[in-house]
């Protein structure tokens, strides 16, 4: 038999979320099956491994890298990673003397299809403000030290435009396969707060 002190307690946020869902489902504006599918996708399937596959392919296939530079939306979607909100993608290639860093100063716009959902720090006000004001300081906080003369370019994401940083291929990886290389591409290197791992 159930006991009173064992009853279910909904916290305020859960109750509000369920209320919103009830409204939207009862009005026929969203399909409950679609909600479940989205949860499944973002909890399990989508993550930085997608982006790492894009980067590793760019490192090993010059034609793909050129396409990525010219039309990242199409090149990335050709690998089956398609934006859901109609956003455009742009690939930012790091090079000797040039380092790219991505932020969303407005909220937390982020290339979900290639990186999954953003880490907590990416959503935090300190990162959103300081990456623009003091990108070198932010990079150092992440343990990423760049030569003094490296030009750090900061890119502010929007609902319409998302960025993927293509880090430089690490030295000592000549002859590696795309699969081997992808393992060196960490999430933060595709946001720009880190470099790709050393082999």
């Amino acid at each position: 038999m159930p006991h009173d002190h064992h009853d279910n307690d909904l916290d305020e946020m859960t109750a509000l979320t369920r209320a919103l869902e009830t409204v939207l489902v009862e009005k026929g504006l969203v399909d409950p099956a679609a909600i479940d599918a989205i949860i499944e996708t973002y909890s399990n399937d989508v993550g930085p491994r997608n982006g790492a596959a894009v980067v590793a392919r760019a490192w090993t296939e010059p034609d793909f890298a050129a396409w990525l530079e010219q039309d990242a939306t199409a090149a990335i979607s050709s690998m089956g990673f398609t934006g859901r909100q109609g956003e455009h993608m742009r690939a930012l290639f790091n090079a000797d003397g040039v380092h790219n860093l991505v932020v969303c100063t407005l909220c937390s716009c982020y290339p979900w299809t290639v990186l999954g959902l953003p880490p907590v720090w990416y959503k935090s006000p300190p990162y959103r403000s300081r990456s623009v004001r003091d990108p070198r300081g932010v990079l150092e906080e992440f343990g990423t030290k760049l030569p003094e003369d490296t030009d750090i370019r900061v890119w502010d994401s929007t609902a319409e435009m998302r960025y993927l940083v293509i880090p430089q291929r690490p030295d000592g990886t000549e002859g590696w396969s795309a699969e081997q290389l992808a393992a060196l591409v960490n999430r933060d290197s595709m946001i720009g707060t880190a470099l790709a791992d050393a082999p």
Partner: peptide
């Protein structure tokens, strides 16, 4: 990505509303 179930539910609800 989601620390509590309601966050996933809320996110999916919003994306579903957009996609519809």
């Amino acid at each position: 990505p989601f620390e509590e179930p309601w966050q996933a539910q809320l996110f999916a609800l919003t994306v579903a509303l957009n996609e519809a």
